[in-house]
């Protein structure tokens, strides 16, 4: 069994830098100048899962990303980590896409690139975090999907057995191939990219596809193809006027207990109450 696997990754501003994000009051746009882009962290887990499958069963791993041209860096990095090939879907006409238009574009890109047994993604992106692209991509590809997968194995050559993170629970599912799995960060620990990997990456194939290269319906891409649009944006102020407790640790603890009391928290009363 050889697997043809696609991994969809997103290029996102480094979450370590989110404190530096500001809003341009005049244009109502988000300023992220000077903030470096990285591969969306959980997408590396998706890539790791793909690489492990390739090591186990053989096959090919293709990384796909829809982004402006600068994202070739992230694609080379993915190939340095071990992916065999990469494709960047890049066109001004793709800009301003919401999750539905993005997933449509990705789906058309994937259809152009070949027939994949398995499409892997991360559960969500660090920036927008809508978590909607995986499900919608699967819909456009007309394949089944599972979201928030923390573990999966092959039940048969055509069927996967997956554990899915639910709320305070774990669901178990079987899913038929071809399928899309959106994996969570628990699924593995992404490998480090090695010096050898970095050097090999530039010798691998990176294809850049624009709107004419992939067969797209122009009314379904970019801002035009997006049912949703963004209105006002703001940076909420959450500041509280705090009071500082000072003194020796004993004094601080005593003051804090008094504060808790004042807020109506009293362990003694609570215990009586529990006895009812």
């Amino acid at each position: 069994m050889k697997l043809n696997i696609a991994v969809c990754i997103k290029s996102v501003p480094d979450p370590e830098w989110y404190e530096k994000i500001t809003i341009d009051i005049k244009t109502k746009t988000i300023t992220r100048k000077g903030i470096p882009s990285i591969i969306n962290p959980v997408d590396k887990n998706a890539l790791e899962a793909a690489l492990q499958l390739k090591e186990q069963f053989g096959g090919k791993v293709t990384v796909v990303c829809m982004a402006p041209p600068g994202a070739t860096n992230e694609l080379y990095e993915a190939m340095a980590m071990g992916a065999d090939e990469a494709a960047l879907l890049s066109d001004l006409a793709f800009a301003g896409a919401d999750t539905l238009a993005t997933s449509y574009t990705l789906a058309q890109g994937l259809n152009k690139l070949g027939k994949f047994d398995l499409v892997l993604t991360g559960t969500e992106s660090a920036d927008g975090a809508t978590a909607q692209v995986p499900a919608q991509l699967a819909e456009w590809l007309k394949i089944p999907h599972l979201w928030n997968v923390k573990e999966f194995t092959f039940a048969t050559e055509q069927e996967l057995h997956a554990k899915v993170k639910m709320d305070d629970a774990v669901g178990e599912y079987v899913i038929q191939l071809p399928a899309l799995l959106a994996v969570s960060r628990e699924i593995n620990k992404p490998r480090y990219t090695t010096a050898m990997g970095v050097m090999k990456a530039r010798k691998k194939t990176l294809t850049i596809l624009n709107k004419n290269d992939i067969d797209v319906n122009k009314s379904l891409i970019g801002q035009v193809g997006s049912p949703t649009w963004s209105g006002d944006i703001s940076i909420p102020s959450l500041a509280r006027k705090g009071q500082e407790l000072i003194g020796t640790p004993e004094e601080i603890a005593t003051q804090l207990i008094a504060k808790l009391r004042a807020a109506g928290i009293n362990p003694a009363k609570r215990r009586e109450g529990d006895g009812k």
Partner: peptide
């Protein structure tokens, strides 16, 4: 929820309409 976060975009794509997440 885990189910809702998956169901809403799936339904949105099936109905071809917009979904606002969380």
């Amino acid at each position: 929820t885990a189910a809702g976060s998956d169901l809403a975009p799936t339904l949105g794509a099936k109905l071809h309409t917009g979904v606002s997440a969380h």
